[in-house]
């Protein structure tokens, strides 16, 4: 079974994040595998352990992403293909990334039975690259899955639908995106860490791809990035319940201005 996993590196949202001139300051930020993508890596390795085959990690990004790719290799993935954007000047959005990944799969002649990705990235939260890639490759996709069973060419998936669950049957080849609850990612073993450096990591430049620069031009533009406003302490209303309700409605109208 050939398994491709799309991995994005994001800054660790649990660490301190600083914004200067409308961009997140990278110096001092801690970069990690996007947590949803880590579920995808884990599931890819589990599928390999069950059905055999090979797990390939696909990552678009600058030089710092290598550390995250090596971690996925330490966890048990077999090889990586890194699309280096270190020297790329233009803006890339979800549409660009999906096209770049598709072109890379073709250029590298990567065969696949299943593609796994995170449901979304914790930095921009757009949840688009997976479904877009499936469309470009003309294969079905199921997003936010919490369980997957592969039996021959048949796939049964449990999908999280806003707190409810759908069971969906599909066939390979297929793209799925991982929701929290799919699995508990393993710690890389020490042997895995020691071996990770020796595993193949192919580097691809955007110029190497059979794709025109206009095709991957960003179609969206980020106008502003700002930190969430500081939360003030909540207000606890006092008095009789009926009075509290009246006061609450009053405040929602006059202070919060939401009704």
């Amino acid at each position: 079974m050939n398994i491709l996993v799309c991995l994005k590196q994001t800054f660790d949202t649990e660490e301190r994040i600083t914004i200067e001139n409308g961009v997140v300051v990278e110096d001092g930020a801690v970069f990690v595998i996007n947590p949803y993508d880590e579920y995808a890596v884990e599931e890819g390795i589990k599928l390999k352990e069950e059905h055999g085959g090979e797990v390939t990690i696909l990552t678009v990004g600058p030089e710092r992403v290598e550390a995250s790719m090596r971690k996925a290799l330490a966890m048990g993935a077999d090889k990586g293909v890194w699309i280096n954007t270190e020297d790329f000047d233009g803006d890339l959005d979800e549409h660009s990334i999906a096209k770049i990944i598709k072109a890379t799969i073709e250029e590298q002649e990567l065969e696949f039975d299943i593609i796994l990705a995170g449901a979304m990235a914790v930095d921009d939260g757009s949840a688009q690259v997976g479904p877009r890639l499936a469309e470009l490759l003309n294969i079905p996709h199921i997003s936010t899955i919490t369980k997957i069973t592969v039996d021959g060419g048949n796939v049964v998936v449990e999908k999280d639908v806003e707190g409810d669950m759908e069971v969906i049957e599909s066939k390979l080849p297929l793209l799925v995106t991982a929701q929290q609850g799919l699995n508990e990612p393993r710690y890389p073993s020490l042997q895995g860490i020691m071996k990770a450096k020796k595993k193949p990591l192919e580097e691809v430049e955007i110029d190497d791809l059979d794709i025109e620069e206009e095709e991957i031009e960003a179609k969206t533009k980020v106008l502003e990035i700002y930190l969430p406003p500081k939360k003030d302490a909540g207000k606890i209303l006092q008095g009789e319940l009926a009075d509290q309700v009246t006061e609450l409605v009053q405040l929602l109208k006059s202070e919060a201005k939401v009704i």
Partner: peptide, 14 residues
């Protein structure tokens, strides 16, 4: 080194 960093991250998570 890359390995030492990875061991640190792994052991911290663990």
């Amino acid at each position: 080194t890359a390995e030492q960093l990875m061991i640190r991250n792994m052991m911290r998570d663990f």
